[in-house]
Nucleic acid binder design. Structure first.
Length: 277
DNA sequence: ACGAGAACCTGTTTGC
DNA sequence: TGCAAACAGGTTCTCG
């Protein structure tokens, strides 16, 4: 489900409702997510004040007043939703962790497939965390541009599609936005990653940045599981150029072949054969 | 050392 | 209609 724009949207929703509040109660309903939840999660969080909420790649970072960070990843099907006191929220089947805040609002972590995770780490050691330390460039960060992307792709002997899904290169892209960004840069997903240099890398970096920015503005893309922290859907799926559009006309041409779906590394890729080389 | 494929898990859609 | 197979916004481990 959630790629960078969806996680960023959730983070913004959490910032509105969590910052300045305290965890009053933490309920662990099941601990066997992608990684096992820390045993002391409840004891270590209850009473703590939330200082800020941030994002690194697809990870949500909730900073508490003891200089620790609650790290959360939504996997494929994870959601974090916030419910005002008395809004009628009832615990559901896959609500694995439920937080009650000091104002009585509820924050629910729900994840049917349990590919998501949560962990707690000292803020000073955040960058050394096993799951964060190998992450590549933030595509919306200042250091991300054509030359920095080209440098990371140089010598990569795989498709540009597979390379962009590798979080050690660009951190935060997923299956939807890779197809969309490659379309925006007129690059074939089958192109060898190492050949994306110079002007091609410039175009790709620009397209990645623009695609993600537009998706965030639309509140992310809702395909099946994803909702914002408020429960509202995302709307960027209505602006997709190619993803999920096999057989449809590409927005830029009338080539008649339509948008094609191929499978790369066991994941669907969508692209226009004529416009992307 | 690198890249492809399998595995993790549940729910929904598709096809025979 | 019913059941099985295929597929889904991700990541990590294993194997060649």
């Amino acid at each position: 489900m959630p790629e960078l724009p969806e996680v960023e949207t959730v983070v913004r929703g959490l910032q509105r409702h969590l910052v300045g509040r305290r965890f009053r109660e933490v309920t662990l309903n099941r601990a066997d997510l992608r990684t096992r939840l820390p045993r002391d999660l409840k004891a270590s969080l209850e009473g703590r004040r939330i200082e800020r909420v941030a994002r690194r790649a697809k990870y949500i970072l909730i900073h508490t007043d003891d200089d620790f960070v609650l790290l959360a990843h939504l996997g494929m099907s994870g959601r974090i939703t916030v419910h005002a006191p008395g809004d009628g929220w009832k615990q559901g089947k896959h609500d694995h962790v439920v937080f009650t805040l000091d104002d009585g609002s509820i924050v629910a972590f729900n994840d049917a497939r349990r590919f998501g995770m949560m962990d707690r780490v000292a803020a000073a050691k955040l960058d050394e965390h096993k799951l964060l330390r190998h992450l590549g460039l933030e595509p919306l960060g200042n250091e991300f541009n054509g030359p920095s992307l080209a440098k990371l792709l140089k010598g990569k002997n795989t498709s540009i599609k597979a390379a962009l899904l590798d979080q050690r290169i660009v951190a935060g892209l997923g299956n939807i936005y890779v197809s969309e960004a490659l379309y925006g840069a007129s690059l074939s997903p089958k192109r060898n990653a190492g050949t994306v240099q110079g002007a091609r890398a410039d175009a790709l970096a620009r397209s990645i940045r623009e695609t993600l920015t537009r998706a965030i503005a639309a509140g992310g893309s809702s395909l099946r599981d994803y909702v914002q922290a408020s429960g509202e859907l995302g709307y960027f799926q209505h602006q997709w150029a190619v993803y999920g559009k096999e057989g449809e006309k590409c927005p830029a041409c009338d080539c008649g072949k339509g948008i094609r779906r191929i499978v790369q590394n066991a994941r669907s890729t969508f692209y226009c054969v004529k416009n992307q080389r």
